[in-house]
Amino acid sequence: MTLKEFLKSKTFICIVVLLVIALVCGGLLAIMNDLLAVTEEEKMQRAIKKIYGGNVDYEEIAVAEEYKTNEFGSVDGVYAFKDGNYLIKTTGGKGFQGGTVTLWIVAEYKDGAFEGFKSVAVDSYEKQTLMSSFDDNFTGVYSSDRSDRGVKEGKNFGLQNSDNEIGNIVSGATRTSNAFNNAVNAALYYIRNVLEGGK
């Protein structure tokens, strides 16, 4: 087949048509992405609204480099609220297919002492296909009285109840449950080692 024949062939036309459609669609998406992108500030306000039911004044706390990651995941942001509580954004690893779950966690403080978690909300996730199974019953465990007691005893969250762990699992979605627990444990690590000064 000569070049001239190839340029007139059905194969070439198919390739060109698909490429043009891909380019136009890609260009359109790039423009829309610029127009409709959700900024970090908007995400932050949404997270606060979701947890507090309204906008609250806060101050961002710089996370020291050595505390940005720990054995459970990463601490992506820490914010101090005017009411004494802290909002911590963490990402827990070792989820389904090695993916992650990113959470917004409110650490409740009374008279300067850590009382437990007030609430936990999902920010985003990667590779987790069963996120719809994780309802308020699952996230509610982190802020339950049982968890508050366990956390004060120095326990972390895990898949099963044990001497060292407070169990929280969705049956059939073990890996994603693991990522959730790791995200909350990452916050616990930060609270114990930084906010509580290593207590």
Binding site: K10, I13, C14, V17, L18, I21
Partner: peptide, 10 residues
Amino acid sequence: IIPDEVRIPA
């Protein structure tokens, strides 16, 4: 414009 052969991916 779209050839029959590649209509589904398009």
